[in-house]
Simulated scan of single mutants.
Amino acid sequence: MTKFLLAVHVLAAIVAIGPVAVAASMFPPAARRAIEAPDDVRAAETLQLLYRICRVYAVVGVAVPVFGFATASNMHVLGSAWLITSIALTALAAVVLAALVLPRQSALVEGTTKGTAEDGASGGVAGGTAGGVAGGAKAVTRQATAQLAMFTGVFNLLWAAVTVLMIVRPGSTTGA
Rank of each mutant, 00 (worst) to 15 (best):
64 V>S: 13
81 A>W: 03
117 A>L: 00
111 G>K: 00
28 P>I: 00
111 G>S: 04
117 A>H: 00
25 S>R: 06
5 L>K: 08
67 F>D: 00
92 L>F: 15
123 G>E: 03
61 G>T: 02
76 H>V: 07
96 V>C: 07
72 A>V: 04
69 F>D: 14
112 T>E: 03
8 V>Y: 11
156 N>W: 12
50 L>W: 05
138 K>S: 06
87 I>K: 09
126 A>Q: 05
33 R>T: 06
60 V>T: 10
175 G>D: 07
136 G>R: 12
118 E>P: 00
63 A>R: 13
52 R>K: 03
97 L>S: 09
37 A>D: 01
48 Q>C: 03
141 T>I: 00
65 P>E: 11
25 S>P: 01
3 K>W: 14
176 A>S: 13
80 S>L: 02
137 A>G: 07
71 T>Q: 14
51 Y>D: 14
29 P>N: 02
23 A>S: 12
166 M>N: 13
5 L>I: 09
136 G>I: 09
37 A>K: 01
90 T>D: 08
114 K>D: 11
60 V>G: 04
69 F>Q: 14
2 T>S: 04
32 R>N: 06
123 G>D: 05
134 A>I: 11
73 S>Y: 15
126 A>M: 01
29 P>M: 02
104 R>F: 01
34 A>E: 01
57 Y>R: 01
69 F>R: 14
83 L>K: 00
46 T>D: 07
176 A>Y: 11
9 H>G: 09
120 G>M: 05
138 K>F: 05
8 V>W: 11
105 Q>A: 09
68 G>S: 08
134 A>H: 09
47 L>Y: 04
131 G>D: 08
56 V>Q: 10
21 A>K: 14
118 E>A: 03
65 P>Y: 12
160 A>S: 12
54 C>I: 04
172 S>E: 08
107 A>R: 02
104 R>E: 01
121 A>T: 03
97 L>Y: 09
52 R>E: 02
89 L>K: 02
161 A>H: 11
59 V>R: 12
68 G>H: 06
30 A>I: 04
81 A>R: 01
148 L>K: 09
18 G>H: 15
121 A>M: 08
106 S>D: 03
71 T>P: 10
26 M>V: 11
139 A>Y: 07
29 P>H: 07
4 F>S: 14
16 A>Y: 04
108 L>P: 00
7 A>Y: 14
105 Q>V: 08
87 I>L: 15
110 E>C: 09
122 S>R: 05
9 H>M: 13
113 T>G: 01
62 V>Q: 10
67 F>C: 05
32 R>D: 05
91 A>Q: 10
29 P>V: 02
87 I>W: 14
120 G>F: 05
22 V>F: 15
127 G>Q: 01
84 I>K: 15
53 I>C: 09
2 T>N: 05
68 G>Y: 10
161 A>V: 12
115 G>K: 08
55 R>V: 05
93 A>D: 06
157 L>V: 08
119 D>H: 06
45 E>H: 12
137 A>W: 06
10 V>E: 02
78 L>F: 06
115 G>Q: 06
100 L>H: 13
113 T>C: 01
105 Q>S: 07
113 T>E: 01
12 A>K: 11
87 I>S: 11
66 V>Q: 10
103 P>V: 07
14 I>T: 15
34 A>C: 07
74 N>S: 12
117 A>W: 00
99 A>E: 07
117 A>E: 03
159 W>H: 08
59 V>I: 13
